[in-house]
């Protein structure tokens, strides 16, 4: 691959350049350098405590790195406030979405629609919070209060809220964890649709079945360090990755 082509891909996507996040003496992210190519669905995997959620918090500005640069579409976003990073076109979901119980589905989605200034378009045919809820497969009425939603509906609401930010890069933090097979398939379908819209998607997941089906690129973190990156099939069969997940001497 020539240098010019490589640069173009990086310009589109997200580049993490020598980033470190430290909590006291613990380096939750330890000098990580990686690229998330624009236009892909990329899997971010790793055992519990490997730094996946910290990675999302770092990229989205919630916990800025103590060293290194985060570059979105060629523009550095390191140290920007989280709401500014949203304006730049990067949105994230939360693994355990804590939404105000007294707000309705419609009100939650309306917040980014009002505040996440963006000239990027919504999916075609989507004009309102209600359309977006429908697009993300939320079946309850939009006037339903969040305190009454099931876990799978809260996950869909979280995706709808992040989509309402009209992102170019979307980080989904375990959006499918704990869902039934049927719900998981629906969310996978939704992620594919979002990808087709031209959104670069980063999926943080545990379930290998999902990664193999959904992603073109995979990144593995272990103890805050980059362990492997590349095509999912290759990464998932990597001996180092297997060892990190299962320990030495075990095979799948």
């Amino acid at each position: 691959m020539s240098g010019a082509v490589m640069d173009e891909i990086v310009m589109d996507g997200l580049r993490i350049d020598g980033c470190t996040v430290a909590f006291g003496g613990l380096r939750a992210i330890d000098n990580v350098t990686l690229d998330i190519p624009g236009g892909t669905i990329t899997a971010l995997i790793g055992p519990n405590g490997s730094g996946k959620s910290t990675f999302v918090n770092m990229v989205s500005g919630q916990i800025p790195p103590v060293a290194g640069r985060v570059v979105l579409k060629g523009q550095p976003i390191t140290g920007l406030r989280p709401d500014r990073i949203v304006h730049r076109g990067l949105a994230r979901t939360y693994q355990v979405p804590k939404v105000p119980k007294e707000l309705t589905i419609q009100e939650v989605i309306s917040v980014p629609l009002l505040y996440a200034r963006s000239d990027r378009p919504l999916p075609s045919g989507v004009r309102s919070a209600a359309d977006l809820a429908h697009y993300c497969g939320l079946r309850p009425a939009v006037t339903t209060r969040c305190g009454q939603l099931s876990v799978s509906d809260l996950r869909r609401l979280e995706i709808a809220r992040a989509l309402a930010c009209r992102p170019e890069v979307l980080l989904l933090d375990e959006s499918m964890a704990g869902l039934s097979l049927e719900d998981t398939d629906q969310v996978i379908g939704l992620v594919r649709e979002i990808h087709v819209l031209g959104v670069t998607v980063v999926v943080i997941e545990h379930v290998m079945r999902i990664i193999a089906r959904l992603c073109q690129h995979a990144i593995v973190l272990n103890q805050g360090r980059l362990l492997a990156e590349g095509a999912p099939q290759r990464v998932l069969t990597d001996p180092d990755v297997r060892e990190a997940y299962l320990g030495k001497g075990f095979t799948l």
Partner: peptide
Amino acid sequence: PAFFMIRNNPHLAAASGVP
């Protein structure tokens, strides 16, 4: 909605573009 989100979960509000 923005105020209630700030009260309940300021990180979620910021992640929705709210200053």
